[in-house]
Design a protein around this nucleic acid. Sequence first.
DNA 1: CAATCGTCCTGCGGGC
DNA 2: TGCCCGCAGGACGATT
Length: 274
Amino acid sequence: MPELPEVETIKQDMIKKIKGKSIKKVEIKNEKNIRIVSPLEFKKKLEGKTIKDIQRRGKFLMLYLDSSDVLLFHLKLTGRLIFSSSRDVEPEYSRIAFIFEDGSTLFFADIRGFADIYLVSQDEINQIPAIKNMGPEPLSPEFTVEKFKDILKRKRGKIKPLLMDQNVIAGVGNIYSQEALYRAKIHPEREVSRLNDEELESVYRELLKLLEEAIRYRGSSVDAYVDLNGKEGNFVPHLQVYGREGQTCPRCGSIIRKKKIGGRGTYFCENCQK
DNA sequence: CAATCGTCCTGCGGGC
DNA sequence: TGCCCGCAGGACGATT
């Protein structure tokens, strides 16, 4: 499941590999992920267009075209974007092929089919509900510790579900919310209104360090995530609690627990997360 | 009104 | 060994 570090990795690779390329042909094998526009309109609006810029917002990847349109991807759980220098090397579960003038191809693949693909004009981006209400980018300079505290102090509820709420902070999902809390030594079920300044500051610091570190390691290949070259990220060995139920806590040696919190599987150390 | 549930879907793992 | 059931989850809409 691609979260901010994984989408950021894909974005950086895309800037190197497909920025400036012109889409010659779009082949749709499975249209299920395409939202709002019809497959025919999707093809028509993309063929002949050039990719001018690539950006990320939360877990969304945004490809700006030389028309006024933007191609948006949200990979959800099992969506993949894989670049190949040849259109003949088709990845597993491939659904859409974006074939460039030079024959190189961007494949969109998805196992479970939850991913969303939008094609909208630039001024329609903010009409997409998931983007309209999205919280700040955690790695932007404006996202200061004061801003973080301001936002969370207005909220009620358990800290972990709040961290992965896209309307609170953009891009943080199930994996990085729980890893950040482990690093900050905060129990995922702590009521946010009962966290003091020092604790909130620690969550902020650890979250930002974690995201930056995960980007340097090209993300975590949990579930279906691979990078633009189809290669796995290198951050999984650096995850300290995620997926480690029954193993010992790297910090205190207690047994790591798994519990459903806010409907999502959450791993934590009951001994050192208070 | 905030929290939980069902929905989409399919690969995989646990259990027998 | 092999089969089958049910779990996993991002975000949204419905429900309690």
